[in-house]
Design a protein around this nucleic acid. Sequence first.
DNA 1: AAGCTGATGGTCT
DNA 2: GACCATCAGCTTG
Length: 194
Amino acid sequence: MITPIDQSFFNKPTLQLSKDLLGCRLVHLMDNIVISGRIVETEAYMGPVDRAAHSFQNRRTKRTEIMYHEAGLIYTYQMHTHTLINIVSGNIDCPEAVLIRAIEPIDGIDYMIQMRNNQPISNLTNGPGKLTKAMNITMSSYGQKSWEPPVFIAEGTKPHAISSGPRIGIENTGEARDYPWRFWITDNPFISRK
DNA sequence: AAGCTGATGGTCT
DNA sequence: GACCATCAGCTTG
């Protein structure tokens, strides 16, 4: 049995949380199988002041609603045909979030390979859409607590070093394009891009 | 009501 | 490198 992290873990500035999540485990406890991986890449989305964030200028819709609630809740959304998973951050009414972009598989690797159509291990979870597919994380996680099963964060192993740089896939967002709000474990082979 | 835009990934050339 | 799946939300009318 893997113990979920304490809810108080999420109570910190979003950029700090983005870094602290590196090395933690993302776990999906299903009926007959445990799926888990080590978080190796994240991105911070800083809400009202961040052109690249869905909640830029406090945009509040059915989709972004959950970001206006307590830190540690799960924000899932559909990107084209894929589901992406974020952890809500910031105080109530401060709509920030951390996108989980890549994990290193730990438990349930055979299951992940199946879910990913027999892709090699190096290509199972090295991207935000890939890891949700591999771990069978869907929109049903929207608004759920990430400090309780079935989908939750658990303690992991501290990264030896952390790198940072511009975020991925937000070329048309003005100044926000260059903010170094992507974080990854230095030299980890499972990050989404080099 | 219609058209555009993605925090993506697979497939094809 | 180009194309595309597919949908919430924004823009324009």
